[in-house]
């Protein structure tokens, strides 16, 4: 009896306030979609970080005829100098930190360059002589590139020592900024959603003030009076969160997996199982948000 009564009250409330309910649905839908996108972006960043940082190498570039920086004086590194660098890399001081390393000749560097910039104008301007020879080093702990800089930085014939991680850091900083922007927008929208839910519930309570007045008069418990309103807010927000969940799944399925993954086949992207992990999070967030703001709104309405 009581449950049936509560359900019918909720249904009435939702129907009576249809336009407000729709706006609650839309606002929670959009704000939670942003939350979902931000979470997925963070997942993507973490995934890419572990993938790329593991593969990030330190390049020890050697001098070319054209270089003037570092230990270079417009002279290509001599075979002796190359051998010295190699000896250092194999020495007892450095070897414990190094997983593997290999030497790249100018021709190999050129071939890689051509492949990387295929079809772009710069590929035609570059000749093998312009590109430095290099030792490519994989460190056991990729964060310790400073050791190489200290040990090899001053050597004659070494132009520069570059940690690829520094490039990656920049890319990830940009991605991070994007995901924080999404989180910021999501937070603002969530505030709007919470306020909108509170307003909707107050409006709903106002349109049922006769019933509420009688319920209080005859001694209906506060919880009994409040529950239908809270459920009303939660139902509206749940519709929005389910839509947001669907949107997140659709974005991953059709945009990330369908478009991005085909366009950039070498990068691994977040997949459907990641999206399905986010969906319950969104639904729970929507429900909790609505329950809290509806609860505060109806409690305050009934107190005055």
């Amino acid at each position: 009896m009581r449950l049936g009564l509560v359900i019918s009250e909720v249904g009435q409330g939702l129907r009576r306030n249809l336009s407000m309910v729709i706006s609650v649905v839309l606002v929670t839908f959009i704000s939670l979609t942003f939350v979902g996108a931000a979470v997925l972006l963070q997942m993507q960043i973490t995934q890419m970080k572990s993938y790329w940082f593991d593969r990030a190498q330190v390049a020890v570039y050697l001098c070319t005829e054209f270089s003037t920086v570092g230990g270079c004086d417009q002279q290509a590194a001599t075979p002796d100098q190359v051998a010295l660098v190699q000896a250092q890399l194999e020495s007892e001081t450095l070897a414990p930190f190094i997983d593997t390393f290999y030497f790249e000749t100018q021709e190999e560097a050129f071939a890689r360059f051509q492949e990387q910039f295929e079809g772009q104008a710069v590929a035609d301007l570059i000749t093998p002589e312009l590109l430095p020879e290099a030792f490519w080093v994989n460190l056991i702990d990729p964060t310790q590139s400073d050791i190489l800089v200290d040990a090899l930085g001053g050597l004659v014939g070494v132009e520069s020592i570059v940690d690829q991680r520094s490039y990656l850091e920049q890319i990830f900083a940009i991605l991070n900024a994007a995901s924080f922007t999404a989180i910021g927008i999501a937070a603002l929208m969530l505030v709007a959603a919470a306020l909108l839910i509170a307003t909707t519930i107050r409006l709903s309570a106002f349109s049922r003030r006769r019933e509420i007045g009688i319920m209080r008069l005859v001694g209906a418990s506060n919880r009994f009076i409040q529950t239908p309103f809270i459920i009303e807010g939660v139902v509206a927000a749940l519709i929005g969160s389910v839509l947001a969940g669907l949107a997140v799944v659709a974005i991953v399925q059709f945009f990330v997996q369908g478009y991005l993954a085909e366009t950039l086949p070498l990068t691994s992207f977040v997949g459907l199982q990641d999206a399905l992990l986010v969906v319950p999070l969104l639904i729970a967030a929507g429900a909790v948000l609505a329950a809290l703001s509806a609860n505060v709104a109806i409690t305050r309405y009934l107190r005055v």
Partner: peptide, 8 residues
């Protein structure tokens, strides 16, 4: 009946 329903 309403006044009885709402007090359970």
């Amino acid at each position: 009946a309403f006044s009885l329903q709402v007090i359970g």
